[in-house]
Design a protein around this nucleic acid. Structure first.
Length: 871
DNA sequence: GCGGACTGCTTACCT
DNA sequence: ACAGGTAAGCAGTCCGCG
């Protein structure tokens, strides 16, 4: 490699010599020598966190990655128990011996007797356990028997279940064997459990779970990585499969303060100014290469040095590109510390977290982060949580100077790292907790959806208890179908109730809601896939309201037990601890993450049973939850009315009550607790609420002065900016209203705001950007076969310009006159705008508020149009 | 040949 | 691939109309 003289590439001289030295030191330091040899876990190590379990095809063994929090290294441990892949079938072992294809299969090892408990039939079953030598053979051999159970579970998951492992928890190696490190439960916690869980089963389970929430998480030593690829033409995204163009820059940001950008010195770069000040401020080390191979080698050395690698879309771009580019440049497989897994990129020794996959997860977005970000781009997510964003480029990356390129590239890696660090490592803590709850390795947790998390916990618990994991078709066959009709065409069963709001302004309104309604129903009604429509004659009279389903009276349902226990831990212990001012700030923050992680889990526990893709799919169970929900809220409304409370609106689990008397509220809460075993609590208090006649559509002023807006067009992501801005101005006005008199004054101001929008629109004072609708593509362009929505039309026009458009992209378009009706912002001109169309959008946006205030939109415009007429 | 009534599709929201 | 319910806008179709 040619050592490039750095000085010649930097503006000015001050301090550069020192940096040069640092770089050389880093290169020669022995601790940074790339080791391809796998290091096995030494005996008697200090406690290590179990991060992942995979299957090693070469050794034909399970491989565990353990993270030592003291020296921040990953140790590898291979199975020492001789655990083998297997599946179950219901024919006896002697009959198995007669299946020639099976017993003569080269991978066939043996067949064993095994007794399992069949949870849906409530009976013991003798099964044959067919043990094979490698996991792939299971996929073949399962077809040789009439019916196979537990035959589609991934080997590494089976290993976790059979050993009862909990990823994210502490283990050590003693005499070569893996041993869990117990976490002490404090006497105080034990007492709390004793008080909170009267039922033995639940208490026993809760005691097993408490350590998962009390064991502190490690500080993961990690590095974020981002690459830039040479792009000759604008709008052409480099193809990571082909990896044709050179990688010109790779940036790293480490949790240990490591900041480095590796740059490939191209002729273009040499010809340009250096522009290097941004990087200087950040104290980033620049390393310049004249050979791309050398650059990749250095990159791989850094990757190998960290236990955890963080990327944003690394599965589909950065790491894939690196891997394929290295192969293209002639690297041997053994010199690349990466390998391709199905649909993702793995780091050989460490763990690769792709944050894009994590943040894209709906359950994370909605429940863990309360919908704080709405688009899944690095920039959008960063601006929801951080104070800085991506550097805006006006040129192509290939046209930048060294300094600009390094600064741009480094910022992305810095943001990526910061997304794992904000709020005290919130994201890493959430990941760790979800690993523990779902018994899933880190790589899987960040890539799989909530249904996979729940499935994994359920399977683990079935295995622990010796329950047979049923086949999906058995559940359907035994439990039957749904009996209710959905309101929405194409849905499988009826959902929740939404009350019809009466338009108007209501002062002094309290919102009561059922705390975690569905999880609570699952708990108190003993709902689970095995208990709904159970096999006992004597349970059939224990009916579920609004259906003809019944629920078991003899056995506790597994879902009911687990969901109920988690719900109780969250409500009775962790929500309280998260708010307990007596605890140190740091501890409170941890418990807040705990209660959020549990929330993600229990909130999805109803939905999965109504999802065909869930392996324990049980429509009657899902339907029973919503049926009981409807019954509960209906009965509660009736009771509230009897008590003299005025219920003005409600949705699923909430009751909006006008001018409530606190004694009556208390009576209602008490009644609900006694009648249903549910907690009704005050969720929100409004100075006033404004309803139009639309459901899921209202606005109100909370007593703490915040304006609460639900469902209105003005706050939708795709609404044009000029409307959103005007809408926000109206909201500002509404903040000043506290009684009916102030309201009337405010009406005039609101009218003025709307008139101004109209005038500005007419005078073409808004930019195209402000007028643009921003609508997302939920699928690839070719998949819109039934019709062509406007954003797709605009996208097609963009594609014609050579711009690559795909699923997940957000299309900005404006409405124009003529038959095309829409144009992407990039191609439109201001004078093409369809004025009338935009006026009707002003109308719908503000009518949602005006209806409540009893103002007529056309009247507002009427006066201004009249003015225009006379002037 | 055209416009209104209608259904269906699509997106973004609420719980 | 957790669920169903609602609002809004547009695409496409059907039907009536001498």
């Amino acid at each position: 490699m040619r050592q490039v003289k750095l000085d010649t590439f930097f503006k000015g001289d001050s301090g550069k010599a020192e940096e040069h030295k640092k770089i050389s030191e880093a290169r020669e330091s022995p601790s940074h020598v790339f080791k391809s040899v796998e290091e096995e876990c030494p005996d008697n190590t200090s406690p290590c966190y179990l991060l992942s379990v995979t299957y090693n095809g070469k050794k034909k063994k399970a491989l565990l990655k353990l993270y030592d929090p003291k020296n921040h290294k990953i140790y590898l441990w291979y199975d020492k128990y001789g655990h083998k892949p297997y599946f179950l079938t219901d024919i006896p072992p002697d009959k198995i011996k007669q299946i020639e294809k099976l017993v003569s299969h080269p991978s066939f090892e043996r067949v064993e007797h095994i007794v399992k408990y069949d949870i849906i039939r409530d009976e013991k079953r003798v099964m044959s356990k067919i043990v094979m030598k490698d996991p792939q053979a299971v996929a073949t051999a399962r077809n040789y028997v009439p019916k196979a159970w537990e035959a589609k579970i991934k080997y590494h998951d089976n290993y976790i279940y059979d050993l009862g492992l909990i990823p994210g928890m502490l283990y050590k190696i003693e005499r070569g064997l893996l041993k869990p490190v117990p976490t002490e439960i404090s006497a105080e916690a034990r007492e709390l459990i004793r008080k909170s869980f009267k039922n033995d089963d639940e208490r026993e389970l809760a005691e097993k779970w408490i350590p998962l929430f009390e064991t502190p998480p490690p500080k993961y030593r990690r590095v974020a990585l981002d690459i830039e690829v040479y792009t000759p033409v604008r709008n052409r995204i480099p193809d990571p499969e082909k990896a044709r163009e050179p990688i010109i820059s790779i940036a790293f940001a480490g949790s240990d303060g490591f900041k480095k950008v590796l740059i490939l010195l191209t002729e273009d770069l040499m010809a340009r100014e250096l522009g290097y000040s941004t990087i200087e401020e950040e104290n980033v080390i620049l390393e310049i290469f004249d050979s791309e191979k050398e650059l990749l080698r250095e990159c791989f050395r850094i990757i190998s040095d960290y236990p955890v690698i963080v990327t944003f879309n690394g599965d589909n771009f950065d790491l894939k590109y690196l891997y394929n580019r290295a192969k293209r440049l002639g690297f041997r497989e053994s010199d690349i510390p990466l390998n391709r897994a199905a649909g993702w990129m793995r780091v050989n020794r460490g763990i690769h977290i792709d944050l894009y996959k994590f943040f894209e997860n709906k359950a994370i977005q909605v429940y863990a982060f309360a919908g704080k970000y709405k688009e899944f781009t690095l920039d959008a997510i960063a601006s929801a949580f951080l104070k800085y964003h991506k550097i805006r480029l006006t040129a192509l990356v290939s046209e930048l100077s060294i300094g600009e390129l390094a600064a741009y590239n480094f910022r992305d890696s810095k943001i990526t790292l910061a997304l794992t660090m904000f709020d005290n490592d919130l994201v890493m803590r959430l990941i760790t907790l979800i690993m523990r709850i779902s018994r899933m390795g880190m790589e899987d947790v960040v890539r799989r959806r909530v249904s996979a998390w729940i499935k994994n916990l359920f399977y683990w618990e079935h295995r622990r208890r010796g329950y047979l994991i049923p086949l999906a078709e058995e559940i359907i066959e035994l439990k039957g179908d749904t009996v209710t009709e959905a309101v929405i065409k194409g849905k499988k069963y009826a959902g929740a109730i939404v009350l019809e709001p009466k338009p108007g302004i209501y002062f002094n309104v309290v919102v009561l809601d059922f705390a975690s309604l569905y999880p609570s129903i699952i708990k108190t009604w003993n709902l689970s896939y095995e208990t709904v429509n159970c096999s006992h004659e004597e349970c059939m009279s224990n009916k579920i309201p609004e259906t003809n389903h019944w629920v078991c009276t003899k056995r506790k349902g597994l879902t009911s037990l687990i969901t109920g226990m988690l719900r109780d831990l969250r409500v009775l212990i962790y929500k309280r601890k998260a708010k307990d001012k007596k605890l140190p700030e740091e501890e409170r923050a941890w418990y807040d993450v705990v209660q959020r992680a549990i929330k993600v889990y229990i909130n999805a526990s109803y939905g999965v049973f109504g999802s065909t893709s869930f392996p324990l799919y049980c429509p009657p169970a899902a339907e029973s939850v919503t049926a009981i929900g409807r019954h509960t809220i209906k009965t509660a409304i009736k009771k509230a009315t009897e008590l003299g409370l005025n219920v003005i609106y409600g949705d699923t689990d909430s009751l909006f009550i006008e001018k409530p008397e606190s004694e009556k509220i208390e009576l209602l809460e008490k009644w609900v607790r006694e009648e249903f075993g549910l907690d009704l609590e005050v969720d929100k208090e409004y100075v006033y609420v404004a309803f139009s006649s639309r459901k899921k559509n209202y606005l109100g002023l909370l007593i703490d002065g915040r304006v609460d807006v639900k469902g209105l067009v003005g706050k939708k992501r795709n609404t044009p900016e000029f409307l959103k801005n005007a809408f926000n101005e109206v909201l500002e006005e509404l903040k000043n209203v506290h009684d009916i008199r102030e309201f009337n004054r405010m009406k005039e101001n609101i009218k003025k705001i709307i008139q101004e929008v109209y005038t500005k629109l007419k005078n073409r004072e808004y930019t195209l950007e402000e007028l643009a609708f921003r609508v997302g593509l939920t699928k690839e362009l070719a998949e819109y076969t039934k019709n062509t929505p406007q954003h797709v039309k605009a996208a097609l026009l963009l594609r014609r310009e050579g711009i690559k458009i795909g699923k997940g992209d957000i299309i900005s378009y404006v409405k124009v006159k003529g038959s095309t009706a829409v144009k992407p912002v990039q191609l439109a001109k201001l004078n093409e705008i369809d004025f009338e169309k935009y006026v009707s959008h002003i109308k719908t946006t503000f009518e949602q508020i005006l209806d409540a205030l009893d103002i007529d939109f056309d009247e507002i415009l009427g006066s201004i149009r009249l003015e225009a007429f006379f002037s």
